[in-house]
Design a protein around this nucleic acid. Sequence first.
DNA 1: CATTACCTGCAA
DNA 2: TTGCAGGTAATG
Length: 288
Amino acid sequence: MPELPEVETVARTLAAQVLQRRIVAIEKLDWERMIDTPAAHLFRALLPGHTIRAVGRRAKWLLMQLDAGWTLALHLRMSGSVSVHDAAALPDSYTHLVLLLDDGRHIFFRDIRKFGRVRLLDAAGLAALDSSLGPEPLGESFAVEDLARLLSGRRAPLKPLLLDQTIIAGLGNIYVDESLWHARLHPLRPASSLQQPETAALYTAIRGVLTQAILHGGSTLRDYRNGYGQVGGNQACFSVYGRKGKPCLRCGTSIERMVVAQRGTHICPVCQVAQAGQEQQPATSGRC
DNA sequence: CATTACCTGCAA
DNA sequence: TTGCAGGTAATG
């Protein structure tokens, strides 16, 4: 479930709690398949003793920078959450990894669907992960020209392209739908068919949607929680996602649900035109 | 490129 | 009972 804004929120709320804390033990690990690399027995041997120096994010990866060049990388996939709990808290049956810190608190990695993954990376592993991912859409250096370059020459429809983490990092099903609605673009529009004003509108929409979602602490549909175990508030700001049958906030037309790239996709059939060359209209702010 | 797999819970 | 869910990886 977590996309860029959710993972960013988790990173910030974890950083506020666990910087300079040492991981003294793995208290629980009952789903070894979540350990991507190295092997689970090595993970158990290598992780304890390291201190958390920084907490950050790359794409949808939560990165806990440890000492000695190690990085603990966690991917929450669909239903994962990471939060800090005091010494007395007990993990439930969905919490598959518990790390004990040197102040007695623990970090819980809870994941109902067990799709989440954990990697212990050395510098080379981190570099390989980084280079496998597209640019950060909220990065200071990410300009509209960069987005134009990513779209140019690609006949693929916008939606699968924007979901592809090797093209652009961090967008998922919610924020792609929201961005396309704000930009008034149809998810099936071929990427290379966008006119410059449309590319500019998409750029503005992506950055605006993600920034607003971070401001509201991410979106909670079901499982997402921040590092304090709290739900997010951005789900109240959705303009199209999950609003099938409800009126478009711009034109009142009933929002439709279709399937694109094997994902449930929400659009306004009137605002989001399938052809190029529409006159560019002023941006709208949606609900928030 | 599109299916399928990976998992569990919940709503229709 | 069936279909759907914020994601990716492995297959045809």
